[in-house]
Amino acid sequence: MKILLVCLGNICRSPMAEGVFRQLAEQRGLDWQIDSAGTADYHVGEAPDRRAQRASAEVGIAIENLRGRQVEKSDFTRFDWILALDRANLRALQSLAPAGHSARLGLLLDPFLEGREPEEVADPYWGEMEDFRACRAQIEQAAEKFFARTGRLQKNPS
């Protein structure tokens, strides 16, 4: 399975999501390719926000070596899933997607995953440290459900 997690600048939500997804895949012994990107080019080459690094480190996830990058056209055929952290970035992905792409696009907090109306992972960038922790916790919950759901789909394709 190949998963790309996407937010706007790729320095807060999506690198935290990449770290969470990598940790869960490793814990489950899954050889999944997990990456993150932004729809904008604001922070290409930059490390994640220090608060995102700290919120991740508090639960044993190291993201300081990740670097921001922008979504590329090739991502739409390279990844099985491209999960946006909010609706604005999902719309941006939908407009960037080339015709005939193979990736499944959706929100990380999709009703498929959560069993309720889609929600967005709030951007903690302008907030305080507790906003980064809340964001990480929300991502952790969604990631657990994604792994549980996709695992069932792989075993029972109906």
Rank of each mutant, 00 (worst) to 15 (best):
Ser36Glu: 00
Ser36Asp: 09
Ser36Cys: 04
Ser36Tyr: 00
Ala37Phe: 04
Gly38Asn: 01
Gly38Gln: 10
Thr39Pro: 04
Thr39Gly: 00
Asp41Ala: 15
His43Glu: 14
His43Ile: 07
His43Lys: 03
Val44Thr: 02
Val44Gly: 03
Gly45Thr: 03
Gly45His: 10
Glu46Asp: 12
Pro48Gly: 02
Arg50Ser: 14
Arg51Thr: 02
Ala52Thr: 06
Gln53Lys: 13
Arg54Ala: 12
Arg54Met: 13
Arg54His: 09
Arg54Phe: 04
Ser56Arg: 07
Ala57Glu: 13
Val59Thr: 11
Val59Ile: 14
Val59Asp: 12
Gly60Ser: 08
Ile61Ala: 05
Ile63Glu: 06
Ile63Trp: 04
Ile63Lys: 02
Glu64Tyr: 04
Glu64Ile: 00
Asn65Ser: 08
Leu66Val: 00
Arg67His: 05
Gly68Ala: 04
Arg69Asn: 06
Gln70Cys: 00
Gln70Val: 02
Gln70Gly: 03
Val71Cys: 01
Val71Asn: 02
Glu72His: 06
Lys73Val: 11
Lys73Glu: 15
Lys73Leu: 13
Ser74Gly: 02
Ser74Asn: 09
Asp75His: 15
Asp75Ile: 04
Phe76His: 00
Phe76Ile: 09
Phe76Gln: 07
Phe76Ser: 00
Thr77Leu: 04
Phe79Asp: 01
Asp80His: 10
Ile82Met: 04
Leu83Glu: 10
Asp86Gly: 01
Asp86Thr: 07
Arg87Pro: 02
Arg87Trp: 12
Arg87Asp: 13
Ala88His: 12
Ala88Lys: 12
Asn89Tyr: 10
Leu93Asn: 06
Leu93Val: 02
Gln94Ser: 08
Leu96His: 06
Ala97Val: 05
Pro98Glu: 12
Ala99Ser: 14
Gly100Leu: 11
Gly100Met: 13
His101Thr: 01
Ser102His: 03
Arg104Phe: 03
Arg104Gly: 02
Leu105Ser: 03
Leu105Ala: 07
Gly106Pro: 07
Gly106Glu: 15
Gly106Cys: 13
Leu107Gln: 05
Leu109Thr: 11
Leu109Cys: 14
Asp110Trp: 01
Asp110Lys: 02
Pro111Ala: 06
Phe112Thr: 11
Phe112His: 14
Leu113Val: 15
Leu113Asp: 01
Leu113Phe: 15
Glu114Phe: 03
Glu114Ala: 13
Glu114Arg: 14
Gly115Ser: 07
Glu117Asn: 13
Pro118Glu: 13
Glu119Ser: 10
Glu119Met: 14
Glu120Pro: 05
Glu120Ala: 11
Glu120Ser: 09
Val121Gln: 08
Val121Arg: 05
Val121Thr: 02
Val121Tyr: 05
Ala122Val: 13
Ala122Phe: 07
Pro124Glu: 08
Pro124Phe: 08
Tyr125Glu: 03
Tyr125Thr: 01
Tyr125Cys: 06
Tyr125Phe: 15
Trp126Lys: 09
Gly127Lys: 07
